[in-house]
Write a protein that binds this DNA or RNA. Sequence first.
DNA 1: CTTGGCATACCGACCGGTTAGTCTGTGGGC
DNA 2: GCCCACAGACTAACCGGTCGGTATGCCAAG
Lengths: 199, 199
Amino acid sequence: MATARTTDGSGAPVPQRLLATATRLFAEQGYDRTSVQEIVEAAGVTKGALYHYFGSKEDLLHEVYARMLRLQQERLDAFAGADEPVEVRLRAAAADVVVTTIANLDDAAIFFRSMHHLSPEKHKQVRAERRRYHERFRALIEEGQQSGVFSSATPADLVVDYHFGSVHHLSTWYRPDGPLSARQVADHLADLLMRALRP
Amino acid sequence: MATARTTDGSGAPVPQRLLATATRLFAEQGYDRTSVQEIVEAAGVTKGALYHYFGSKEDLLHEVYARMLRLQQERLDAFAGADEPVEVRLRAAAADVVVTTIANLDDAAIFFRSMHHLSPEKHKQVRAERRRYHERFRALIEEGQQSGVFSSATPADLVVDYHFGSVHHLSTWYRPDGPLSARQVADHLADLLMRALRP
DNA sequence: CTTGGCATACCGACCGGTTAGTCTGTGGGC
DNA sequence: GCCCACAGACTAACCGGTCGGTATGCCAAG
């Protein structure tokens, strides 16, 4: 057995446990309202352990962003690059980002709310990666507009912001124990987007 | 002249100046990263003045919410109650909330980002007022769906969240010095909503 | 098999700095 | 002479981060 078996609560390795605990607490209370002491207590370790694995409290936050950005970019690339008509690819990508966001609601809640807690360099880096994502999505819409399957009445940039506004908003209102499953919400939101883009 | 004329920078009365300064700083740096000392210095007074007019730092934040909620509710009531076909009323209300949000971008940036800094009672109160607003808006959509001018494919609740997601998102990407005026953005976003609702 | 040495993983008391809020003081208009 | 509107020094609490210390496992030498 590789990992030490001490008197901890859960069996997961310490770094992962710290990150998971921090993510939950950041989402529940916000970054500033969550003290390092609180995180280590909830994870069943002490500050020494945290600063052994992470350079700072901010590193913990940055990890949340890195994880989220990597995941979403990978999925978008997969959907956008598929061998399908553009309207199928866009719909799939638009619905998938909703499902993925709901599956990681804590990350989503943190994402926009805590961006300004990142140091200037990390903030810039996150914004740059975010922009790449945005542009990949926009390219899909422009492709459809140029080929005539989507209306060109609205600039593609605005359409992207329209859709991602609603995705971002999910963490405010969506509740897993509510009447709609993630899949149902995703289908509805993707439908709204596709209907808004009808020529 | 009623208001005292001391050596302050701007001529506005002290309470308003404090609130305006706090709003700007909260939007720029976040609630927690803004110290009371910073606010009073930027407003050209001292802590004594702030605590003379406001009970706590949180009261300042609550004022931002109260102002925003009052303004939006008033305007929605006016538009929704007009003597026009439902599609005209909805479009006007949907566009107006965009214009008003852009006119008060700082308030909007604070609104969703800092909600969890409110005490439980105030948080609850804000959520309740917010829900009233949401329901008024939803009623408009349901009215159109029942009379057949809007598609019923998507539950009205979801449509409201879809639209307000994009409104909420404005503070993230909209820049007053960008290529689009508030009116143009409002028209585009209202168009997207109306097109998504076409039967 | 045992022993010594070293690295990794973690502990927890401690520190400098910051914060929201308090309280006593004061000056000028009525 | 009184009181409203503020001034500004002060405090008690808390926070992120540090650092010397300890326990445990591994590997190589004897």
